[in-house]
Design a protein around this nucleic acid. Sequence first.
RNA 1: GGCGCGUUCGUCUAGUGGCCCAGGACACCGCCCUCUCAAGGCGGAGAUCGGGGGUUCGAAUCCCCCACGCGCUACCA
Length: 489
Amino acid sequence: MAENVRVRYAPSPTGDPHIGNMHSALFEWLFARRHGGKFIVRIEDTDQERVVPGAVESILDGLRWLNIDWDEGPLVGGPYGPYIQSERLDNYREMAERLIRQEDGYRCYCSRERLNEMRQEQERRDQPTGYDGRCRDLSPVQRQEMEAQGGPSVVRFAMPRSGTTRVQDLIHGEVEFSNELLDDFIILKADGFPTYHLASVVDDHLMKISHVLRADEWLPSTPRHLQLYRALGFTPPQFGHLPMLLGPDRDKLSKRHGATSVLEYRDQGYLPEAVLNFMALLGWSLDDRTEVMSAETLKENFSLERVSRSPAIFDQEKLLWMNGLYIRELTAEDLAERLTPFLERGLPKELLPVDRDYLLRIVPLIRERIKLLSEAAEMITYFFQEEVDYDPADLVQRGMDQESTVAALRLARDEMTAVKVFEHQLLEDTLRAAGTTLGLAARQFFGTLRVAVTGRTATPPLFETMEVVGRERVLSRLGTAVVRLTSSN
RNA sequence: GGCGCGUUCGUCUAGUGGCCCAGGACACCGCCCUCUCAAGGCGGAGAUCGGGGGUUCGAAUCCCCCACGCGCUACCA
């Protein structure tokens, strides 16, 4: 299959790029790349009512963010365009007419009301639901009469009434369907637009798609598609149905479960490479232990044989862990760059803009302390403020009192005023000695200094932090701490 | 209701007849490191492989039945 592998991602522009959808796109893309084939994006906007303005852009944004590139499709074009179904209506009409001519299709004049009643009746009697085929056997005269009335009609496909349709699925193996259980589904709607079934079959053929990879929910309609290929005289592509993504309650992943748009993950501070890596592991594995791998490795090793048949639950916890892992591997420059938009959003406006060189000194201190880019702003405000705020009582560590705390702050200030270079190693040596002089444990002395300098009880290593904050502000904050302590009672 | 798919630690997974009284990862717990918080290291707990029958010297792996979950059953994709 090395020659001419052509795989398509066919989203319908009904909203944001859903993570489950992107998961399919990822597998399709990886398959195409693995086999040196083409990855095609095709917009399936055949349901006019569900089309959401801006959705196409969002979907493409999602792909671009994840670095999933497409060879043919919107924006890039290609030899089999247009890649938007609403611009290809003639193809579907032509094929529908051809099917009618061949008597593999027919016009159906049944009203929605009749269809609803029929379905309700079937449900009430616990019968299988589906179109009863009434218009299939209309005589030519009856047909003429219906046409003369000029009412709305749709085109249905005339399914074989017996026999079986076998699907050779690349992932599930052979799956058999009994034709008599499949009804005459609609292929062309009253508004002249095709349904998914017709449009995807026609386009997959016209676009020379070699492998139809899509989510598992499509497996039940594959026999219909196979019958369309047969009736149209097209050679069907190979099919592979990918595992779906579920929420923690095992229901199809939806908004109820939290973020479902890949763009939300972007905005929450996830790294695209982490999301990509994580998604690849949902329903696919390289081996029994490799989990962290680049897109490059994925593209070289992806294979359908290792795609699992069972659905996967989207585990945010593990994604978060992996995101932290990827953040820790970033260079300071890279992380600073990626952090900037989040800081511009999360830092108090008066502290902006962020000085890049200064940020570069802070980044190594927080790199292993954030799991999301969005966590940084809150964590580093004291690097930018002049003074920090806190409850003076926090200065007094366990086993200390106000007097010893003030003494500690004063000695620290004296020592740090005297120190030649305001550098962390020197600060540490000096202050450890001071701590001994004071008879304080490291956690007591440094705990006091930490609160005085940062206003926090948990921060990056104290001495590195003070070095970056700088002598002037450190000394000033120590002075402030003494004032606060002595004036608070 | 019908049809289809699926079922290994809480979760993602490895496993395709003996290497498995089931391996890795996240989460969880403990210890170490340590100025706090992380990160990291080490260790622990956690799956009678959905249940029941078979086949076989031997089954998570093959067959059958059942149960459960999910999907489809639209002039939605």
